[in-house]
Design a binder for these strands. Structure first.
Lengths: 154, 154
DNA sequence: ACGTTTTTGACCTTTTTTGACCTTCGGGGC
DNA sequence: GCCCCGAAGGTCAAAAAAGGTCAAAAACGT
């Protein structure tokens, strides 16, 4: 295989596939050791290959007993959400647009009334008290994170 | 399990759950002995895991016949939610404290798993990408807005 | 030759573990 | 009653154990 990053990707991919619940946990230093590379190479692979766009979730913890966890998102179920998050949504969003998305998701039966209320409240401009270019960026980040969280539960 | 602190936490948690009235009493030295660690490790676990935000009260007594007592506080009525929003919640909140509250509300049956996931995601520091005094203020405002929104639906 | 992707390394942050030293309480002896 | 002693538990900071970030250098593709 061509390069280190690709080899590490292939290795991790095979481990994730083998994992019964699609969840893989490992130590960064150990993996770096195995491939005889610097630890930050692992971060590079994770950042470029195991993105949410490709259907992965990466979490980690520092300190004694730290780890990196890679899980596969269950994509079939929430495909509509996934599309929305990665294609339609830009990295800045006005309140109106955000509310329109939320409403649409509720109408599609993807959000309960309580969930809709929650998200609607979160996205309001008085809550996100920032000046304007920043506020719209924060709103997009917030909405994306919340939708991603739902995707992860499927 | 990954590390000592997590193992001790799990052990204590299981004992507290088993205790009929949610009160557990133990000797620090004995527990340290059981896990083969220094006694102050126990204090570390208590300080980081059995906090009031997570719904625990820890008391202790020194000297002969000394002990450590862990009790679970309960958060039942929606009335508690009011309290949380108006009083307990200052105008700035760290991620840890926010997560602790959200977890407690879920445990009290006031939030569904999806609502918990939504709020948990919203409150994360990578999502709220601001510098520090501002981030904690925004987080408090966001959490308050989301909880109020749920309260209004009742 | 130029832009893009990969590789590397220096430096940073978070979390846990450990140990030296301190405080409080109860009981015995005076 | 007062003092001392041993039996608890408490505090704090250093060391250790992870993982993260960022930008420069190298390699690659066209």
């Amino acid at each position: 295989m061509r390069n280190l990053a690709d080899r590490i990707e292939a290795y991790l991919l095979s481990l994730v596939r083998q994992a019964p619940d699609g969840v893989l946990e490992l130590q960064r230093a150990e993996l770096a050791e195995k491939f005889d590379c610097v630890p930050s190479q692992i971060n590079y692979v994770l950042a470029t290959r195991f993105t949410t766009e490709r259907g992965f979730l990466v979490e980690s913890r520092r300190g004694g007993g730290g780890y990196i966890r890679i899980s596969r998102l269950n994509l079939d179920a929430g495909d509509e959400l996934h599309q929305l998050i990665h294609r339609a949504m830009g990295d800045a969003m006005s309140q109106d647009v955000a509310l329109a998305y939320i409403t649409r998701l509720q109408e599609a039966g993807l959000l309960t009334p309580r969930e809709t209320a929650l998200m609607t409240a979160a996205v309001h401009r008085e809550v996100l008290a920032l000046d304007l270019p920043a506020r719209d960026i924060l709103r997009a980040s917030l909405l994306r994170a919340m939708l991603l969280a739902l995707l992860r539960l499927e």
